Simulated assay, not measured.
Amino acid sequence: MKYFFSQQLLKGGVIKKQRLYVMFLFICLAIVSCSRELEVQTNFPFELEIMPVPSSVIPGEIVEIPCHIKREGFYQDTRYSIRYFQYEGLGSLMLQEDKPFKPNKLYKVPADSFKLHYRPKSKEGHKFQIWVADQFGNERTAEFDFN
């Protein structure tokens, strides 16, 4: 009888030791796997939405081009810039009533929704392209062709 009880105690003690080892192992893994730094995603892709614009223009009249940056996620410090290049015709592009853009120069986009104004200066066809980019290297383009 004495032998039977000591065997039972020994088995119970071994099981308890195994449980303690397993718990200790889990605690060690939890401590090692945790990182003290919180990872914040800052780089979100976006789309450039442009409302329909007329296909023909009259020299001197302003064509309004409503644009919207549609973000897939939001990071408060994301900054967008715009540049353009006109490869046919003569005209000027600007943010609303601001100064005309110079080709291939970066300009700050003031908000997610903005309006570009294009003022043609000649009767021939007008073709230009705009690029909107963020500071993370994401970039979208749009091409305009006015007759």
Rank of each mutant, 00 (worst) to 15 (best):
F44H: 15
V132F: 06
P52L: 04
L29Q: 11
S113K: 14
Y3V: 12
S92E: 13
I50N: 04
Y3Q: 10
K127M: 10
V57G: 08
E47H: 07
E37S: 13
G13H: 00
I69H: 09
F5E: 05
L29T: 10
D112N: 15
R36C: 11
G137Q: 13
K121C: 11
E88N: 12
I15D: 00
F74Q: 09
L93D: 00
L93A: 01
E49P: 01
G125E: 15
F4M: 03
T42Q: 15
F136Q: 07
R71M: 14
R79W: 02
K121T: 12
S81T: 11
E61Q: 15
K105D: 08
S56E: 15
L116D: 03
H117C: 09
E97F: 02
F44V: 11
E143N: 06
F4W: 01
E72D: 13
R83M: 11
E124W: 12
R83V: 01
F46E: 07
Q96F: 07
N43V: 01
S55A: 08
K108N: 05
G12S: 10
V63Q: 03
Y3W: 03
L48K: 12
F4T: 04
A30D: 10
E47A: 09
D145M: 03
V57N: 07
K2Y: 00
V132P: 05
G60H: 10
R79L: 10
A142H: 11
L90V: 15
F74W: 13
K105A: 10
G137F: 09
K70Y: 08
C34G: 12
L38K: 09
I50G: 02
Y80H: 09
T42A: 12
Y87W: 14
S122Y: 06
G60Q: 11
P45I: 13
R19C: 02
H126A: 09
F114D: 03
Y80G: 03
Q135P: 09
L38T: 14
E61F: 10
N138H: 15
C67Q: 05
I69W: 14
F26P: 00
K108I: 03
Y80D: 06
F5K: 05
E61W: 07
Q41F: 15
S35Q: 13
E139P: 00
C67V: 05
Y21T: 07
V53Q: 09
F44D: 12
V57T: 14
V132A: 01
Y75A: 06
L95N: 04
C28W: 12
V32A: 13
Y75C: 07
D77L: 13
E49A: 08
K70S: 12
V32S: 11
Y87G: 09
F128Y: 14
K16L: 08
K70V: 15
Q41T: 14
P100A: 00
I69K: 07
K70A: 13
L93S: 02
Q86F: 02
Y3G: 05
H68C: 12
L29P: 09
Q86A: 08
R36Q: 14
G12I: 01
S81D: 06
